[in-house]
Design a binder for these strands. Structure first.
Lengths: 259, 259
DNA sequence: GCGTTACTTCGGCCGCTGGCGAAGGGTCCG
DNA sequence: CGGACCCTTCGCCAGCGGCCGAAGTAACGC
């Protein structure tokens, strides 16, 4: 008698699905995979701080539940988020989730967080303060309009094609090509969807941004500084990693790392 | 050592948030509340088939987590989904969730499911086969365009204003006014967002549709039949509740119930 | 072939979470 | 004021679910 749920027994089993994400370890996997890469099982295990055996079972569940896709490569098990759509859902849940603060343990830790909050990868597009600033600037310049939900204006489409950005279709055609993604550090929307992804790809290809592949951190190159300043009117204080602080040495080191 | 999650310890606590929905009872509450009404605590308890004490604790958690909003009215505790946004999120999770079939226990049970799959309320808009058909018809007639994600065309805006539908802003202005909501019975998108809600409201106001308040079931009136046929070209087989079956007596009874 | 590496399976442990009913506190109504 | 009703608090119980480590299998490289 403890298990019978009367009227609403049939229908979608929301609890089961949500249960997939309702575990620290599995959630850590999904958040890590938000960088869009494919990870191996042991990388994920190490990141989440659990034994391989534990990770293995969790990964089974996530794959079976359709959240992750796996690909076997020899003795490696490669895991990625199943679809862009899935990433979108996880983002939106993450934005609603309470922030779990952890005491800062070191200076490098502090730097990591600051750079992460400034610009990071969010599956296939850019997130963080910089992403929000870009979105704001595009609105300011009349490239984005918000009247009927976020959309590119004619000027916006021109702007993109001047950059040589192919305006390709999103994989799921019924989903908006221009979409907003709630930024969990800024609690404000930033550009996502097909256009957001295309713009991010362009920024990487043009070496405006550099992505060090082991983390989600993205850094702005000198070329990126110039481009974003002239094309979007971004100011230096937005482009630099938040208020000038320690860690500039690291920053500048990374900045000249642009290919 | 069992609880330390290394690198990803800080950041959004996705697991905690997902945990709110990862319980049969709490999920049942949320799904029930998708009808957009405010329910009392005991109504919810009864629907989910748990003791009041159990429900009380669950409701605390859901309110504390920001999923539900509560309002005390004398000795009653009224609960509703916190925002339209919340409803949207729950819908989207429900659409991804596995369908949990339950053996059909009776004829009325079977009828209930059939009518629910045909047309039901989904927070502030219409869902079910009828909603999908309406969306398809609007696309067919060039009222909706999908090129850059779903949007109203100029013709669509005219069509709405001919109906006298105020094209009001959604509460969250950064979210698309025209949005698609994945239908969990049809597994195809139907119209939602501000426009979807306005259209549904109009349909109720004009007595095209009738909503019996104790369930999520919506039925089409004779006026609704006529209107949807002439305005959108819907055919009778879509308008009637799926393939002609038993239960017509009930149907016709409801249909003439239009105010 | 051998050792190494990557992942999986198994058994056992522990703690969290959800369940109940009984009793207690508000609120409403007659 | 008394009874009915709605909700909450409390104590207790049961079971699920996550964790680990050890042993087993499968792939790679020398």
């Amino acid at each position: 008698m403890t298990s019978f749920n009367g009227t609403y027994a049939d229908g979608p089993d929301l609890a089961e699905f949500a249960g997939l994400l309702a575990d620290r370890t599995r959630a850590a996997f999904c958040l890590a995979l938000l960088d869009g890469r494919a990870w191996t099982a042991s990388e994920l295990a190490r990141t989440a701080g659990v034994a391989q055996s534990t990770a293995s079972a969790h990964l089974d569940r996530l794959v079976r539940g359709g959240i992750l896709a796996e690909e076997r490569q020899g003795r490696n098990r490669l895991l990625r988020l199943a679809t862009a759509d899935t990433a979108e859902m996880i983002e939106s849940l993450a934005a609603r989730s309470p922030y779990r603060p952890t005491p800062v343990r070191s200076l490098t830790e502090s730097n990591r967080r600051r750079t992460l909050a400034h610009a990071r990868i969010c599956y296939d597009h850019l997130a963080g303060a910089l992403a929000v600033a870009i979105t704001d600037a595009m609105t300011e310049l009349g490239l984005l309009a918000w009247d009927y939900g976020p959309a590119l204006t004619a000027a916006g489409r021109n702007w993109l094609s001047e950059l040589g950005i192919a305006d390709d279709r999103p994989d799921d055609s019924w989903r908006p090509h221009v979409r907003m993604c709630m930024d969990w550090t800024e609690q404000r929307p930033h550009l996502a969807g097909g256009v957001g992804a295309a713009l991010f790809r362009h920024a990487l290809d043009s070496s405006w941004l550099v992505h060090r592949s082991t983390t989600r951190i993205v850094t702005v190159t000198d070329a990126g500084h110039a481009a974003l300043r002239t094309r979007l009117g971004l100011t230096d204080d937005v482009l630099a990693c938040s208020a000038a602080q320690a860690g500039m040495s690291k920053d500048s080191g990374l900045r000249q790392g642009g290919t």
